[in-house]
Design a binder for these strands. Structure first.
Length: 376
DNA sequence: GTCCAGCTTT
DNA sequence: AAAGCTGGAC
């Protein structure tokens, strides 16, 4: 801990000064947090043998994705690619198959590419320096800090949404996660509190506390190790911190989906529509502002693919799905074809690969495609 | 139905 | 500043 009596941080030419947190308070909180983590850390698969490779894979998968969702993906992924060299020499399509259903598919491409860079430029070991780690595709500020602190126990503080929530409540910081000022305030607190001896455990403890105790809407203050000294708890309204971030409104879009079946195979194309899910196999689909415009756009698309184009019957089912700010209403038009002809850009995929079995990574299909298959 | 996870790239 | 995926909580 610095011996100055206030914390100073120079960011973009501005000097921020904040009242320091009393050293005794910092130490008490740090110790309470680390002891809580020692007793309550969940036995997550990437914590069993925390090699840098496993830590890195888990951090990429955990971006925007919940722990419970990640666990089976992580286990399958490490079975398929036990180390960075195995990942580096894998086919891209195979990596995508094992990512199928996890979302944000760009992550898998960047991960694969980064593995090849690690093998070629870093001797097959995840780099130990911030700059080198940051140079890898898919590794931004947060991921570089988390991997280096957890895998190598280097003194980097991490700031994710969980950490921001815990700290804003503990120190009663106003603002929301997207504001630079707010983030700087949180960072100042973290710099004062980070355990220099056990930064990895400290960071994981804060994030775990945010995930399991300091919950957004219903914090479990009675079991929180930071309750003593928590400003939001004292205020009586812990759920009011931090402020909700402004959100872009979601727009409803209609999607027409052709479920073209021949024998027990479905015709799939690469990509969805409007440049969404470009790497994934999907049922031929088209967006529109209404059901009817979507249907017509789908017919246009099918005309370019098949001649003569099939006629579309009445839709058999509607499913709902969300992609970023779009709320998608998908009408499914079942089409039977006599023979599974070879068509350029079309791939016939056995129905069983789209079911629950697909979770084992047998096809690079989106979750949307799986919902469609399940509705048939 | 709304909110939350909540990071990286362009 | 905006876009990208999916699932779960409430």
């Amino acid at each position: 801990m610095a011996s100055t009596d206030f914390a100073v941080d120079i960011t973009e030419g501005r000097v921020l000064r904040r009242t320091p947190i009393a050293l005794t308070e910092v130490r008490a909180a740090r110790q309470a947090l680390l002891e809580w983590f020692r007793d309550h850390a969940r036995p997550l698969p990437w914590r069993r043998h925390p090699r840098p490779y496993a830590v890195w894979i888990s951090e990429i998968m955990l971006q925007q994705t919940q722990v419970g969702t990640v666990i089976p993906y992580f286990n399958r992924f490490l079975r398929a690619f036990p180390n960075v060299r195995a990942l580096a020499r894998a086919r891209r399509e195979r990596v995508l198959e094992l990512w199928s259903g996890l979302g944000y598919y760009r992550r898998s491409r960047d991960l694969h590419c980064a593995a090849q860079i690690i093998v070629r430029q870093f001797g097959g070991r995840f780099p130990r320096s911030y700059e080198a780690a940051r140079s890898l595709p898919g590794v931004g500020d947060y991921t570089a800090r988390s991997v280096l602190s957890i895998a190598y126990n280097l003194p980097f503080a991490v700031l994710d949404g969980n950490v921001a929530r815990v700290v804003s409540r503990w120190r009663l910081l106003r603002g929301h996660v997207q504001e630079t000022r707010f983030r700087q305030s949180v960072e100042l607190v973290l710099e004062q509190c980070l355990s220099r001896r056990r930064p990895g455990a400290f960071n994981q403890a804060l994030m775990e506390l945010g995930q399991t105790v300091c919950l957004p809407r219903a914090p479990r203050c009675p079991v929180c190790p930071l309750r003593v000294g928590c400003g939001a708890y004292a205020s009586g309204r812990p759920e009011s911190y931090p402020e909700p971030r402004p959100r872009r409104r979601t727009e409803v879009r209609h999607l027409a989906v052709a479920a073209i079946r021949s024998d027990s195979k479905f015709a799939l194309v690469r990509g969805l529509d409007e440049s969404l899910l470009p790497d994934l196999w999907n049922f031929p689909s088209a967006f529109g502002a209404s059901r009817e415009t979507a249907r017509r756009a789908l017919l246009d698309k099918l005309s370019a693919l098949l001649s003569p184009p099939p006629t579309l019957p009445a839709p058999r089912a509607e499913i709902r799905h969300s992609i970023t700010h779009r709320s998608i209403r998908a009408q499914i038009y079942p089409v039977e074809m006599a023979a599974a002809r070879r068509v350029h850009g079309l791939r016939w995929v056995p129905a069983w690969r789209l079911g629950e079995v697909a979770r084992t990574g047998s096809a690079a299909v989106s979750a949307l495609a799986r919902k469609v298959a399940a509705a048939l």
